[in-house]
Design a protein around this nucleic acid. Structure first.
Lengths: 357, 357
DNA sequence: GTGAAAGCGCTAACAA
DNA sequence: TTGTTAGCGCTTTCAC
């Protein structure tokens, strides 16, 4: 229907008519309501410099013709599309998907759309995805997951993040990277692990297995907290009790079964599904949880509630972290300068296995 | 650095210099490499009509200056940004996030980016999100989840999907809506439910609880399969055995506990977390699973593996559905006309509780 | 309060 | 093979 073409070119445009519905444009609206495109633009953008009468007239036409401004054209002029890039290693992961869910909800609320990328954990892929998102002229880049802090071995690993931060503000959820225009929000995992370890020791546990699937920033914090608690209590740090496995329930179980000589009376796992793996191991060997073996998970995900017995888990307040990031993002985009670059939120230990502590 | 401005306006442009890195544009590249923007464009788009020498020269400049074409400008001209809109009710849901994960991976592979929206189940919100995605000039709209087929009460519920299909091809994952330019891929849930019910009956189960949290298309298919299997075996369909609850493990457990008069010897749940709820109920009452109570879940998610005992679950081949959708999408976008509008994939029953069947 | 027109960066048709 | 330029739809001065 419509699409008269730009008035200045006097209907030169002859779009072939496909089965596709054509998008109405600002020239159509202008013509239909007998004003100039400038006026239509003013109405659309809520400028006060339009008479009430004209405004209503134009609004009526817009309503009727279901006009939506072309985001490309708008973006071209403003160099922004009110779009946020979100990158995570894997959206099928419970923790990531939950984070993205919070972010999307909040951002949507403020009129921002989300472009999603899943990068995995490889350096190359992370860089490629970040570049790709940036090329979409996102307003902000949000990185979800502590994998983006790098392995800690080579500072150059995170160079691409600092490079991105030269274009747009970058927000890290549950991760930490230093740099200008980079903003972080993360749980105090160190403290969480410290507290859990301390509590286990107090209950007389002597051999606490530290179960992890990676060496991310977050995992390193947990390990450090665990080790510090041991040291502070005068216990030795045993290398064999730091157990690294693939994050897959049955794999964890099998690996633990395969190391029968490894003795431990409690488990601090870096996430809930690792903890469930330990649970399955205990089940297979007939070890009672929590009477004979204490198992504590991390992230307080649905996994911790799904298993039997249900797991005590450290909650790092993901929702809080996400909302915190969005709040600060809005401030930064508004041009506010005094915005905290780092937000460290205390973890909360959610107790489920009554005799754990 | 750069940004000489358009040559035709002879450096009129004076962008104020902020701390933000400016994006290099095609004019910059043209000037730096001593060719016209047309040539740069050709190089960028891999046109064969460029001499190898020029190409290398331009490529070098592009490399060095980290030029990426402005997607807005490109989109304006082509009216496409190689972007796919994905809408799901809730990305924190295991099933949805898994679907999005498959989709993103596959689409990324073909050079498409994803804009993600989470609409919830409300009619208004679904329509609003669909409109919002459409206004971003997506190339295709993908709807994940059977909620998008509507409740089946009023065909007008899905009008917005047909409206969207006038603009771009619409793909439904695990759902079905009829219409031009609408493509569906779903598991044969009817058959899955039928087979499970039949198997349970054969094992002597007499009162099979149908546990559901909604009346989506998918849930209706499952119910129909369940009822048909009962009928075919000469069993009555009992209203009290169709049990509708909120999808939350402990809520399910509590609701079942609250209905102590309700007797059943097996459960067919519409998803795994409902099934886990039934498991928790059994645990609370000291009912042994699967000896005294058979529990079968749906979706074959990690939930089914996490619980104790692990659950037999109907797998509706989500990955297959997603890849199938993407494959057909590519064909449709290529202008292919003979593309199946409907793909029904057989489900697979993944047995875990050995004595279930 | 309103309109004319420049400019955003790119693609593609046309010229050379 | 290369360059010139119209056109994509919108925002935003700058006149009136």
């Amino acid at each position: 229907m419509l699409n008269f073409g730009k008035m200045r070119y006097d209907n030169v445009r002859v779009k072939e008519f496909t089965e596709r519905g054509d998008y109405v444009n600002i020239y159509d609206i202008a013509k239909l309501s007998g004003v100039s495109i400038a006026t239509v633009s003013r109405v659309v953008n809520g400028s006060p410099r339009v008479s009430e009468k004209t405004k209503q007239k134009v609004l009526a036409v817009i309503q009727e013709s279901e006009y939506t401004p072309n985001v490309f054209a708008r973006g071209l002029g403003l160099d922004s599309m009110k779009t946020i890039g979100i990158l995570c290693p894997d959206i099928s992961d419970l923790y990531m998907s939950e984070a993205v869910s919070y972010l999307e909800k909040s951002l949507q609320n403020y009129g921002y759309d989300c472009i999603l990328g899943c990068s995995g954990n490889g350096q190359q892929e992370k860089e490629r995805h970040a570049r790709s998102l940036l090329s979409k002229r996102i307003d902000t880049l949000i990185l979800v997951g502590s994998t983006y802090a790098g392995t800690g071995k080579d500072p150059a690993e995170t160079d691409y993040i600092r490079a991105a931060a030269e274009k747009v503000p970058v927000f890290l959820i549950n991760s930490y990277v230093e740099g200008e225009n980079i903003y972080c929000a993360y749980g105090d995992e160190w403290r969480g692990a410290y507290d859990v370890t301390q509590a286990l020791l107090r209950r007389g546990k002597k051999r606490i297995l530290f179960l992890s699937d990676s060496h991310t920033y977050s995992a390193r914090q947990k390990l450090a907290g665990y080790e510090q608690a041991l040291s502070d209590a005068g216990y030795p740090i045993r290398g064999e009790l730091k157990f690294y496995v693939k994050d897959e329930i049955h794999y964890v179980k099998e690996m633990l079964l395969a190391h029968r000589t490894l003795e431990f009376d409690s488990v601090l796992a870096c996430n809930d599904s690792l903890a469930v793996g330990a649970l399955k191991y205990a089940g297979a060997r007939g070890i009672r949880v929590p009477e004979e073996l204490s198992v504590v998970g991390y992230n307080n995900s649905r996994m911790a509630v799904c298993c039997e017995p249900e797991l005590t888990s450290v909650d790092n307040r993901l929702e809080r972290l996400c909302n915190d990031a969005v709040d600060r993002m809005l401030l930064v985009l508004k041009g506010e300068t005094a915005v905290d670059q780092v937000r460290k939120i205390p973890c909360e230990i959610v107790k489920r296995c009554s005799t754990d502590f």
